[in-house]
Design a protein around this nucleic acid. Structure first.
Lengths: 201, 201, 201, 201
DNA sequence: CATGAATGAGTCTTCATTCAT
DNA sequence: TATGAATGAAGACTCATTCAT
């Protein structure tokens, strides 16, 4: 019986899942609430029992998914002992997330850039939290003398993320997928590592 | 008399300029055609004498501005003799464009990622052309033995662009502008150069 | 145990009381059934066990309250022997009802005027019964030679009621309440009495 | 050519006229904007070129019609020399307005009583201006020694208006119209005059 | 009897686009 | 060419009512 997905929590989840799909395919503004309702197999009005309005669906989506992503990334990073391996791991996880949940990734990609005024602040907060995972690795590396002191961790963390995001996008869009994601991840992280490393003696 | 901006060409230009401003501030979907008209000091209907519809304004905007950007970048790159200097130059020009025309940059940023179905193909074409400027430098470097052969120029060109784009975005958003754009440009290009270079000897 | 208000009759009453409050504050059309339910501390669905629909709440409200008002007024009038005193008494009771139960009065005030087609007939029936209390006093006075024969009792009864209703409304709305209701009641009834009286010899 | 009713001003007027009809028949809340548009023979959207929203239609309706009514009443009152004749004239004009424009009257009748918060204040202002026409006659009469000093002009003006309004409503609703409006007007004003007059000597 | 989650019909309002002038 | 008043399709959101529990 426990399988029947009719509990309130499930409906909330179902609507969010439906929204991810619909938003990713049509973009936020071209998505109709009724379409999300249909995809979630609920009535139009039901959506408004779980979300304040269309915007709120997007926000909740961020709230939940970004939170998950941050947690997951932290766990993954912790698995690696070596600082430079943490870098690689970050790259791999980041790229894979786009492979595993491309719809969600597509939404993040756009909304991270454009979003209505009042979302912007919230989105940025979560995003910065995400970037801190990288910048703190860099800072740690600088303390340990592995990474060059002159490097600004904030800027490079953004650059690193931007590089990965763009490569992931390319991978999703290119129909043939000639280059594997893991190779790309290695390539990018290698470049950054080599670029940042302290050329000691 | 030459001052009066009523020639057809002027009106076309004025509408496009107005669109850049309006789209950048409100996003494409939250921008009203009437608002663009007002900003351009033109009647609503006049817009439809120069553009097929709202989408067409955005497309034309791309057509013109991306073309200009590509031309400009090529010229700038040609000014540098040294291959690695070309890299730096690319970074500087790219970042500066965001400083000099932030409205336009904001539009590009979003539309490069999301755009209605039918724009996608077109946008990509122009974008790939832009990226080719970098990838061909890389390829040249590989031929000359300066850059490591194992590196995939397509992927790295995207990574490089993504890194720059994100850093530029950060710079635009951060209110204090503590780090100068040129320092950032140097930082990013240094990392990539060092990361790609052939460690001969 | 008798305190627990869960008997069916109580719930019916509670819903009606809640409706009076809610309708008076927001008007019929701006009142939500769910709001009445909340005010009555009942589930939304429960309302539909006691009333056919939202309209039916209003009708029942009339049915009960108008009936009570008519009975009460008749009793009060009967307390007075003198015909002209009955007039005054009517005015006082009428005005006081607005003071004692302003929410109910507010609803009556509006619904007596506007109400959906199907309510109109019913409302009028009850209202006419109410007005007959006055008109029959007038008629009695005409028989007794106290009130001028030429006066149309139906019209004057309406005029009298209208005058009182408006004065009561004014009293409710005016924040300072400078003039007491009883003074107003006397003023109005005096004018009507003096205006209708037979100036015998 | 001047006859063709397509000028902006005409459209404004047409929408207002349509609104009077539609509101009077269905009540404000049961009236659809689309219905008003249809009645006015314009597109739904056109309404919003002339009015901010549905509420604004009602407000404008008041603004214009109450203003007219006040002007008209003042003019009519001025035609009478005798103070008591002014009273009669007021009654006649007031009652006739309901006969001549029953739709408008029906709206005024209800909206004067119930209306959304923000209308209330405005409505009252205009209404008080209207009532001042009566109260100032009373005051004048008191100065001239014709009307009893003890009478409160504010209260009586409201009572007088309420009496007339109710009688008019009765007249509109009664199908047979046995009693003429002018007789009713005379009856009511006679009662009030006699009731207020100073019994000198 | 009681609940309250779910439903979905119903409407206001917006805004890209047209077209008579 | 230029105008801007007019159009009307489209969609977010509300809330009375139902019904499975």
């Amino acid at each position: 019986m426990a399988i029947v997905p009719t509990k309130a929590e499930d409906k909330h989840k179902r609507i969010l899942q439906a929204a991810i799909k619909v938003f990713a395919h049509n973009g936020f503004y071209n998505s109709k609430v009724s379409e999300i309702a249909k995809e979630a197999a609920v009535a139009d009005g039901t959506i408004y029992l779980y979300f304040k309005n269309k915007d709120d669906i997007l926000i909740s989506l961020f709230e939940e998914e970004m939170g998950k992503a941050i947690e997951n990334m932290k766990e993954e990073i912790d698995k690696e002992e070596d600082l430079l391996d943490k870098f690689k791991r970050f790259a791999i996880v980041q790229l894979n997330s786009k492979k595993e949940n491309p719809d969600l990734a597509a939404i993040m990609e756009v909304e991270l850039r454009q979003s209505s005024k009042f979302m912007k602040e919230y989105v940025n907060r979560k995003f910065i939290e995400y970037l801190k995972i990288i910048s703190s690795i860099i800072r740690e590396g600088q303390k340990g003398g592995i990474i060059k002191k002159g490097i600004n961790p904030t800027i490079v963390s953004r650059a690193f993320w931007g590089a990965l995001d763009e490569v992931a996008r390319f991978w999703v869009l290119s129909p043939k997928k000639r280059v594997s994601l893991s190779v790309s991840a290695e390539l990018i992280s290698d470049i950054f590592i080599k670029g940042m490393i302290e050329e000691s003696g």
